[in-house]
């Protein structure tokens, strides 16, 4: 009785159910804590390696990189080049998305268009982006068309195949119901087709965007006079690891922000109905 009283008084960590399933019992550490720990260990490890093991031109410390990032912003370079890149990125992505969706819908509805585009899509999915970046950089020289066309060539197929899957997955039973009730065509499109394809559009945007920003930087590196890619090339030629890492981090942070705070927010609003349903 006494022992039980003791353990009942002590704060008992609840058993993590998932851990039990695979065979062992863990006290539950919140996932947030684990992630924080991960970042802390990573930064400390980086700092330690850069201080004790590697010279600063091989592995600059996190502090040095952060300082570089600040100075890039302060000098105004960030604004100039980042905006240039963003501009090309959004123009290219917008075109790639609209064109890709249109082609995806055409492919979903017609065997002819499916066969027409299938080889092109297969080729662009397997060929490394480097090839497209080189070709576009070469053909378009310093014009912003280079990155834009490269984005269209590489991101479009990702959008297309996802939209195609969406069109194929359109729920026939709901469309039949709308047909039987003589619902008008615009109402059908708005209430059945668009919500049914929406998840696929989000996936398409996600994959397309992920490719787009990388190819923008790559094409800029080979053939532009401005932009993040151009700056990375400059830093590389100056053999400044600090500079390369700084600009790389700008890119990566931007990508994460877009994914987390833009895409996920939109998704959350759109798919409230899914999360609130019980199984």
């Amino acid at each position: 009785m006494g022992r039980r009283g003791l353990s009942a008084n002590a704060a008992r960590p609840p058993i993590d159910r998932r851990a039990t399933r695979s065979g062992y019992v863990l006290p539950r550490v919140s996932t947030g804590l684990s992630r924080l720990l991960a970042y802390a260990i990573f930064l400390l490890g980086w700092q330690a390696l850069s201080t004790f093991v590697f010279p600063p031109f091989i592995l600059p410390s996190p502090v040095l990189v952060a300082q570089e990032m600040v100075s890039i912003v302060e000098s105004g370079q960030f604004l100039t080049h980042f905006l240039a890149t963003i501009g090309r990125l959004f123009v290219g992505f917008a075109i790639a998305f609209v064109l890709g969706a249109a082609i995806g819908i055409a492919m979903g509805r017609s065997a002819y268009w499916r066969e027409f585009f299938s080889d092109y899509i297969m080729l662009t999915l397997t060929t490394p982006g480097l090839v497209f970046a080189l070709i576009c950089a070469m053909f378009f020289g310093l014009s912003p068309l280079g990155p834009v066309v490269a984005i269209i060539l590489t991101a479009m197929p990702h959008v297309t195949i996802n939209v195609y899957e969406g069109v194929r997955a359109i729920p026939r039973d709901l469309l039949d119901m709308a047909h039987v009730y003589e619902v008008s065509r615009p109402a059908r499109v708005r209430n059945v087709l668009v919500p049914a394809i929406a998840p696929y559009l989000f996936t398409a945007a996600r994959y397309g965007f992920a490719i787009a920003w990388k190819i923008t930087a790559l094409t800029e590196l080979f053939g532009s006079a401005s932009g993040v890619g151009f700056q990375i090339r400059t830093e590389f030629l100056l053999f400044s690891m600090r500079g390369v890492l700084a600009w790389a981090l700008f890119l990566v942070i931007f990508a994460i922000v877009m994914e987390r705070f833009v895409l996920m927010r939109m998704e959350r609003r759109f798919f409230r109905w899914r999360r609130q349903a019980f199984a």
Partner: peptide, 26 residues
């Protein structure tokens, strides 16, 4: 191990999105 996974999750995300271009240069 779900705890290990929580630990590694963000690294994996970064690993999946970090551009190969930068790795090539590094």
């Amino acid at each position: 191990s779900p705890r290990a996974e929580a630990f590694a999750h963000d690294f994996l995300v970064i690993g999946l999105t970090f551009p190969y271009l930068i790795w090539g240069i590094i």
